[in-house]
Amino acid sequence: MPSSSPQYLFRQPNLPIAEAWAPLDAADLEEQVEIPLLGRVSAGMPIEACLDADSIEVPTRMVRRNTYALRVNGNSMVDCNIFDGDVIIIERRESAENGETAVVMINDQEVTLKKFYIEKSGVRLQPANESMAPIFLHNSDIQVLGMVMGVVRQPDLAA
């Protein structure tokens, strides 16, 4: 069975993430650079953080100064057009604005991908899937690791 080439989706600025994805055109795909693929991130219940030492080639346009990739496990972000098996391109950051889609470490051991909201009582990590409940935590329990800037979708991996 021939494998299809990956689809590269680049996040356009100033749009809600569900509407922000634009496919890169052929010219953008010519120059590629290797970035670290550091492991998996849960789009569901948080999973234990464990680093891999792999890499993935992505178009140069998707890469900023502190960029890395994570493979998505789960379906909590489907309403943001991020699916199980996708590889997300992350820009390393230590803070997030309300409503941004962030990779967050919980209690220095578990990592999850959720929409980030600051509330009076702490932080709400909101799935982009109506069938899943948000996670409420104290500010001291979480650490923002980065923002989602792109998606690599492997058609032959999608369910």
Rank of each mutant, 00 (worst) to 15 (best):
N139E: 12
D84T: 10
M132Q: 15
L113C: 05
L137G: 09
I47T: 09
P134K: 07
M147S: 06
R11W: 00
M147Y: 01
A27S: 11
H138K: 15
T67F: 06
D25S: 07
R65E: 13
N107M: 12
I89T: 02
R92D: 09
P2D: 07
I17W: 02
G146E: 09
A96H: 03
I47V: 13
L113A: 01
I135Q: 09
V123R: 06
R92L: 04
R11N: 01
P36T: 06
T60L: 13
V78K: 08
E110R: 11
A102Q: 00
R93F: 06
N73C: 15
P36N: 09
N75A: 07
A22W: 03
M77V: 10
E110Q: 14
R71A: 05
M62Q: 03
D79T: 03
M105F: 08
F83A: 03
V103H: 05
G122C: 10
E91A: 14
A22G: 04
P127K: 13
A53T: 08
I35K: 02
T112K: 01
R153M: 09
Q109W: 01
M77R: 09
L37G: 03
A102I: 09
W21E: 13
S5Q: 15
L38Q: 00
V144N: 01
L70K: 05
Y117M: 12
E34A: 03
L145D: 02
F116L: 02
N129P: 05
E57Q: 15
E48P: 02
A20N: 03
K114F: 02
V144C: 07
P59H: 10
L9Y: 12
F136S: 14
V111L: 12
T60I: 11
M132A: 07
D54H: 08
F116D: 01
I35G: 05
M147K: 13
E30K: 15
Q7A: 07
